[in-house]
């Protein structure tokens, strides 16, 4: 058994695993009840499933230029998916889409901007966050600096 046949078999196994992760994400998206839990399901194929499929495609292609493109796609996905998930989760928190009573740790609620996240309590927080690019960015900086002591 030469190494190309082995690479083909490994590529097929990788692609099958990636497809199964995509299917799990679909099932989780349909069944889970909350935005955060749906994110928990939906971010599996975005990173691990896609990386497995890319590894499979790279094992099938076996070309340096194509491998460079695949590595680029994988790196870009690894960089952008956590940022997007962070922003979606934060928007879910601020619009009250989370189940606050069942959170184990709620670090955003213990900070000095305790009232800013409640949707029914104060609409002014969202008005402030709508004010432009500078507003939410500054609040993010404060939230990040609060995290070690909170």
């Amino acid at each position: 058994m030469n190494w190309t046949a082995t690479a083909d078999v490994v590529a097929l196994v990788c692609m099958l695993a990636g497809a199964v992760l995509c299917l799990l994400a679909g099932i989780g998206l349909v069944r889970l009840p909350d935005v955060l839990t749906r994110m928990h399901a939906a971010t599996k194929p975005q990173v691990l499933g896609l990386l497995l499929v890319l590894v499979g495609a790279g094992l099938r292609l076996r070309n340096v230029a194509d491998l460079t493109t695949l590595v680029l796609v994988g790196l870009f996905q690894l960089l952008t998916v956590p940022v997007a998930a962070h922003m979606v989760g934060r928007a879910a928190y601020r619009t009250g889409r989370t189940d606050r009573e069942h959170l184990v740790v709620d670090e955003l609620a213990t900070g000095p901007y305790r009232s800013s996240g409640r949707p029914g309590g104060s609409g002014g927080a969202f008005g402030a966050s709508d004010g432009g690019v500078g507003g939410p960015a500054r609040r993010d900086a404060r939230d990040g600096s609060d995290r070690p002591d909170g």
């Binding site: 889970l32 009840p33 839990t37 989760g89 069942h102 740790v105």
Partner: peptide, 10 residues
């Protein structure tokens, strides 16, 4: 729904 999922999704 329980706390394990929230923790994992966070």
């Amino acid at each position: 729904h329980g706390r394990g999922r929230e923790k994992g999704s966070g």
